[in-house]
């Protein structure tokens, strides 16, 4: 499993009913179902991801996240997870509201634009960053709302949300000590666990 998914795995309570937005091939949901008795649905838009979920026996619903979560009732899930999709949405802030309407708690991961390698790309070399977490060129990237660890924290504060946990991932590891002290600089992937106040 991807490094950010490993971390999230620990944050999902036993037996929880969850939504996994942009669930990809369903690997996280499958493991959570098998090992933690978690139920719920993945939402995905990629045809191949959907077929892989179906092959695994993971519940997946074809859905464009930019259409919101209107078809899901208030407080109908324990947690809503969204990994590596925030930056590709038309309105990330509205999605955050939607996630915390449907569930009390949300887990969000996204590429941290302020990661030092990204800064080197832009600040020193003068190019838009291309990295493992941001693999696309500027002209064909699906990522239309890039943000930093600090930006997201700021948004949560503005919305009056409680940040229950925050972490960063670097490469394939859960995070070097440097990223614990200076997450905005040393974290490649930002991982937040937020809650309504």
């Amino acid at each position: 499993m991807r490094a950010d998914l490993e971390l999230i795995y620990d944050w999902v309570p036993q037996g929880a009913h969850i939504l996994d937005l942009a669930c990809g091939d369903g690997a996280l949901l499958e493991r959570l179902a098998q090992e933690k008795n978690v139920s719920g649905y993945g939402l995905e838009i990629d045809p191949e991801g959907i077929t892989q979920c179906v092959a695994r026996g993971v519940n997946v619903i074809e859905h464009n996240l930019d259409d919101g979560l209107g078809s899901f009732c208030d407080n109908s899930y324990d947690q809503v997870i969204m990994t590596q999709a925030l930056q590709a949405l038309r309105r990330p802030d509205k999605m955050l509201d939607e996630m915390l309407r449907v569930a009390e708690e949300g887990i969000i991961t996204f590429p941290n634009f302020a990661y030092w390698r990204h800064r080197v790309h832009l600040g020193l070399r003068g190019y838009m960053p291309v990295s493992k977490s941001l693999p696309h060129a500027w002209y064909d990237t699906p990522n239309i709302h890039l943000s930093t660890f600090n930006d997201f924290e700021h948004l949560c504060r503005e919305k009056g949300l409680v940040i229950v946990d925050r972490a960063v991932g670097v490469g394939d590891h859960k995070g070097h000590w440097t990223s614990k002290w200076w997450p905005n600089l040393f974290g490649e992937i930002a991982i937040f666990r937020v809650r309504r106040r």
């Binding site: 959907i50 179906v54 078809s71 899901f72």
Partner: peptide
């Protein structure tokens, strides 16, 4: 989708593709 939404509201196992 109406059907899918009813099934998710009822907590059933469902997958949907368009």
């Amino acid at each position: 989708r109406e059907l899918v939404d009813a099934l998710t509201r009822a907590g059933k196992s469902v997958s949907y593709a368009n």
